[in-house]
Design a binder for these strands. Structure first.
Length: 448
RNA sequence: GGCCACGUGGCGGAGUGGUGACGCAGCGGACUGCAAAUCCGCGUACCCCGGUUCAAUUCCGGGCGUGGCCUCCA
C-alpha cells in the first residue's frame, strides 16, 4: 500500500517515505486554550486523527508518534483570565479539559504527546539563543527578533516573494525592527502577565512569541526534522513559514518536515463563521444535538483540502449514512478496514471516496469488511444507538393503544375488510405512526 | 490592492484528456390486498469566454464569483 500525500511546500501529491519507518513522526498545531473550540477547530483534529489511524495501520501502532501541542501562553488567554477574574492556570486547565472531552466525543484518539508551551520555555530559549548566535536573530529594545532577510528561502511555503510582502505591508512597523518582515521570538511581558527570565542577557522578564513554541516542542518530542507537519490552511502564513525559518536556521537543515499538510477552511450554512454573523458554532453545541460520530462523518464527507460547508442537512445525511452502515454491518467484523477504503485513504486521505466504498460494502459479502472499516475509523455503534433511542420521537398514543389498533387492523385484514384496515392505518399515520408489515407480523415506529 | 485556493446534476461530493463515482432527494419496477420498509433500475452535470488537441469538465490564458492570508489578532 503506497501512501501519497499532498505537500503544501511543493504543491504536489508525493509518495510518503518516512525518514525512519520505525518512528513515523507527525506534528499538528493544537488549540489555544482560552475558550470552547469551534467546529472549524474540529476539522484538523478529525482529519489528522484519520491520518494518525492510517499511519498506525500502515507502520504499526507503536511506530507512530503524533504530537499535538497546547498553546497555554497567549494574549487572548491573559485577557480572558483577567476578564473572568480567574487565574491563567485555571482557565487553561479548564479549557483544555473541555477540549479533550470534545475531541474524544468526536471519536479522536489522544495524540501520543500533548505538550504545553509553558512547559517548554527552556527549549524555546535555547533555540532563541542559537538563532542569535548564528546571526539569524537579534536583540532590540528587550525583544528578540528573527531576521527574515537572514534566511534565503523565506516565503517558500506560502509562495510569497519577500519584496511583494514588504510592498503589501499595511501595518505600522515597530521601530525596533531592522526589517519590516522580522518577527518576534521573545518579548517583554506586561505587568501581571506570565513572564520568564529572558534569554540573551535581556534583563526584563518576558515571554515567547507565538511561533517559537512549535519549533521548540516539535524539536523536543520529534527531533530536528520529522515527517509530517499539519494544521489549518490559515496557519501557512505566517505561522508555519516562521516555524520553518526558526527550525531550519537553528538546526541548519533544508526542511523542517518532509510533508506539510493543510486542511481547507470551514463555512457554516454557506457563510463565513463569525461571532458577528451569529453563526459561530462550538463543538460543544454540535454535540448537544448530534452524536460525535455523526459530526465526524459529516466532516469527513469532504476532502480535507477542499473548503467544507457545515450544514444541518449535511449532519442529517451523515446520520442516515452512519445508521445505514451500522445496520448493514451487524455481525462479526474483520480485523482491518476494507482494502478499497484503505486505498482511497492512501490517496491523500480521500475520505469521500472511502465513504463511497463503504456504501458499496452494505451487502451480505461486504458486511464484515464494513464492520472492520467502521472500527478503523473509530465509529461507535453504541453511541449512535443511544442517541437514536434518546431522540426517538414520542408516539402520540400509548403503545398499548397502538398495539390494540394494530390487532384490530390485522383482524380486518384477515377478513379482507381492507377499507377498515386502511382506515386504521391512515388514522395512525395521521398521528405520525408508521406501520410495517412483514411475514413475522406488524411493527410500528414514529415517523421522524 | 498583492498573493494563494476553490467553482461538478435539485442538494452534497469524488474523479478524469476520449466507455458520465458515490450518497440524499426524485422517478420507474419488483414485493405487498394496497402501502411502508427492502431490493432492482433510471440522471446526455462539470461558472463564462478564448486557446492547445483528432478529442477538454479535465491542460493553458483571460473574465466573473466565493473563500483564505497579507507581520507579534490565531
Amino acid at each position: 500500500m503506497d501512501l501519497k500525500l499532498y505537500d503544501t511546500l511543493t504543491r504536489e501529491k508525493q509518495p510518503f517515505v518516512p525518514l525512519d519507518p520505525s518512528r513515523v513522526r507527525m506534528y499538528v498545531c493544537g488549540p489555544t486554550v482560552y475558550d470552547f473550540a469551534h467546529i472549524g477547530n474540529a476539522r484538523p483534529v478529525i482529519v489528522f486523527d484519520v491520518l494518525f489511524r492510517l499511519l498506525r495501520h500502515l507502520y504499526g501502532a507503536d511506530k507512530v508518534t503524533y504530537v499535538r501541542n497546547i498553546t497555554d501562553v497567549d494574549d487572548k488567554i491573559n485577557a480572558r483570565a483577567a476578564e473572568r477574574g480567574t487565574s491563567i492556570r485555571d482557565l487553561t486547565e479548564e479549557t483544555y479539559r473541555n477540549f479533550k472531552e470534545d475531541v474524544s466525543a468526536l471519536g479522536c484518539l489522544p495524540p501520543t504527546v500533548e505538550p504545553r508551551a509553558t512547559e517548554h520555555i527552556d527549549e524555546m530559549k535555547t533555540l532563541i539563543e542559537r538563532l542569535v548566535a548564528s546571526g539569524n536573530a537579534y536583540v532590540a529594545d528587550e525583544h528578540v527578533l528573527f531576521s527574515v532577510p537572514s534566511m534565503k528561502n523565506y516565503g517558500e511555503l506560502s509562495k510569497r516573494p519577500l519584496d511583494e510582502m514588504i510592498a503589501g505591508a499595511r501595518v505600522d512597523v515597530a521601530p525596533y525592527k531592522r526589517d519590516p518582515m522580522d518577527f518576534v521570538l521573545w518579548k517583554p511581558s506586561n505587568r501581571g502577565d506570565p513572564s520568564w527570565k529572558s534569554p540573551s542577557d535581556i534583563r526584563t522578564p518576558g515571554r515567547p512569541g507565538w511561533h517559537i513554541e512549535c519549533s521548540a516542542m516539535s524539536w523536543k518530542h520529534l527531533g530536528e526534522t520529522f515527517d509530517i507537519h499539519g494544521g489549518g490552511i490559515d496557519l501557512v502564513f505566517p505561522h508555519h513559514e516562521n516555524e520553518i525559518a526558526q527550525s531550519c536556521c537553528a538546526f541548519h537543515t533544508d526542511r523542517m518536515a518532509s510533508t506539510w499538510m493543510h486542511n481547507g477552511f470551514l463555512q457554516v450554512e454557506g457563510e463565513k463563521m463569525s461571532k458577528s454573523l451569529g453563526n459561530f458554532v462550538t463543538i460543544r453545541e454540535v454535540l448537544a444535538d448530534w452524536p460525535g460520530d455523526v459530526a465526524r462523518l459529516a466532516m469527513l464527507s469532504s476532502h480535507y483540502r477542499q473548503p467544507i460547508n457545515w450544514t444541518l442537512k449535511g449532519l442529517e445525511e451523515a446520520e442516515k449514512a452512519l445508521a445505514s452502515f451500522f445496520d448493514a454491518a451487524s455481525g462479526g467484523a474483520d480485523p482491518t478496514p476494507a482494502p478499497a477504503v484503505l486505498e482511497a485513504l492512501a490517496d491523500d486521505l480521500n475520505t469521500p471516496k472511502a465513504i463511497a466504498e463503504m456504501h458499496s460494502l452494505k451487502n451480505a459479502v461486504g458486511r464484515k469488511a464494513l464492520a472492520g472499516t467502521l472500527g478503523f475509523f473509530g465509529f461507535r455503534r453504541a453511541e449512535l444507538a443511544a442517541w437514536r433511542e434518546r431522540h426517538a420521537p414520542q408516539p402520540a398514543l400509548p403503545a398499548a393503544d397502538i398495539e390494540s389498533r394494530i390487532a384490530a387492523r390485522n383482524a380486518a385484514r384477515k377478513d379482507k375488510n381492507f377499507a377498515e384496515s386502511d382506515r386504521i392505518r391512515d388514522e395512525l399515520a395521521a398521528m405520525g405512526i408508521v406501520l410495517k408489515d412483514s411475514k413475522d407480523g406488524t411493527t410500528w415506529e414514529v415517523a421522524r
